[in-house]
């Protein structure tokens, strides 16, 4: 994560620019979509100029004849996806800089693309400590930026996604994007000597029952991150390798399930809570053996079990006692 420290420096340098030139978007940078109609329209028009080329539509019908279409193909975005992302409502140039205002884009414009830490400075500082301890930092520190995993044009934080199925789909796609692709894995592993061969995910997880079901139901990071010591960060960015990853099923499969403070941290309590289920918030999306239990039913079954054993033992003891008495009398 070379970017974070550099980003903080860049942030200080660019602070003046942000205050003077980009102040119109300051509120949007903090996360809230703009509400001023004039500003919304200005951003829409500004972004439309970018989308003129950087979309599938732009690729199919290029507005200019001098575009390098092969290069453009790598830089295509989905406006709908962006509008649903955390950065919705932001002008492309907030991150991509003024060098992209005109075409051909300015030489060195790429170098002026803002780093995440320029806006997310506090978070980046907290994340950096965790990232430094992660398996990614150990092997590929210089190659990893926030964008390696988090596509700023698409990413949505779990709190905004809400639906656990959507959170799982988005977050696991980040992991398997590399860990299930020889091509992409090799982009990173090429720098390691000896070059690391991508391990097969199914083989690695052979110990895990219902592997595929787990991948659909929970995020890789449920097991591959420790509990975040920073309260404001729901999940740690210390990605754990297979040796340190959670292998104790009961961490999730119990009434004190870690899922309640991880994947289901933002899940709203639903009506099933009235039925007395433990971890009822999970039930809306999944049934988790050991976690989503009903203590009332469990107690009822336990009492029935205890009564049955007591009656049978009592019946047996009485039979034995009376049989002994009969035997004594007859002898």
């Amino acid at each position: 994560m070379k970017s974070v420290t550099q980003s903080l420096f860049a942030f200080a340098v660019l602070a003046g620019v942000a205050v003077s030139g980009a102040s119109a978007f300051a509120a949007e940078v903090k996360g809230a979509a703009p509400s001023d109609p004039a500003l919304v329209e200005k951003i829409r028009q500004s972004n439309a100029a970018c989308y003129g080329c950087h979309t599938e539509q732009g690729l199919k019908a290029p507005p200019r004849a001098d575009l390098d279409l092969e290069k453009l193909r790598q830089l295509v975005h989905d406006p709908a996806q962006f509008d649903a992302s955390n950065h919705a409502g932001m002008e492309c140039t907030v991150c991509h800089g003024q060098g992209y205002k005109a075409f051909p884009h300015a030489a060195g414009a790429k170098q002026s693309i803002s780093e995440c830490g320029e806006c997310h400075a506090t978070k980046a500082l907290r994340i950096e400590t965790q990232f430094e301890a992660s398996v990614h930092a150990k092997n590929f520190k210089e190659q990893f930026t926030c964008r390696t995993c988090h596509d700023p044009h698409a990413f949505r934080v779990a709190a905004k996604l809400g639906d656990p199925h959507k959170i799982v789909a988005q977050d696991n796609a980040m992991c398997v994007g590399c860990h299930n692709s020889d091509l992409r894995f090799a982009l990173f592993s090429a720098s390691v000597t000896p070059q690391k061969v991508r391990p097969d995910l199914d083989t690695l997880h052979a110990w895990l029952p219902n592997t595929r079901l787990h991948w659909q139901a929970v995020r890789c990071i449920e097991c591959h991150t420790p509990t975040s010591p920073v309260k404001s960060l729901g999940m740690s960015h210390e990605i754990l390798g297979k040796d340190k990853a959670e292998k104790n099923c009961v961490t999730c499969h119990s009434q004190e399930t870690a899922l309640a403070t991880r994947l289901y941290r933002f899940a709203a309590e639903n009506g099933t809570a009235d039925l007395g289920f433990a971890n009822a918030a999970i039930l809306d999306s999944a049934y988790v053996v050991g976690a989503t239990r009903n203590p009332i039913v469990d107690r009822t079954v336990g009492v029935l079990f205890g009564l049955t054993v007591a009656v049978l033992l009592g019946h047996g003891a009485l039979r034995i006692a009376l049989a002994l008495i009969r035997r004594r009398r007859s002898s």
């Binding site: 110990w207 895990l208 029952p209 219902n210 292998k247 104790n248 099923c249 009961v250 499969h253 119990s254 009434q255 004190e256 053996v289 050991g290 239990r293 469990d298």
Partner: peptide
């Protein structure tokens, strides 16, 4: 052991219990 997972030391470990149960 699966249903009452995490409730006591007498239960079969979860992963093993899941495989045997299947």
């Amino acid at each position: 052991s699966l249903h009452f997972a995490g409730s006591g030391p007498l239960l079969v470990p979860f992963s093993l219990a899941a495989r045997i149960h299947d």
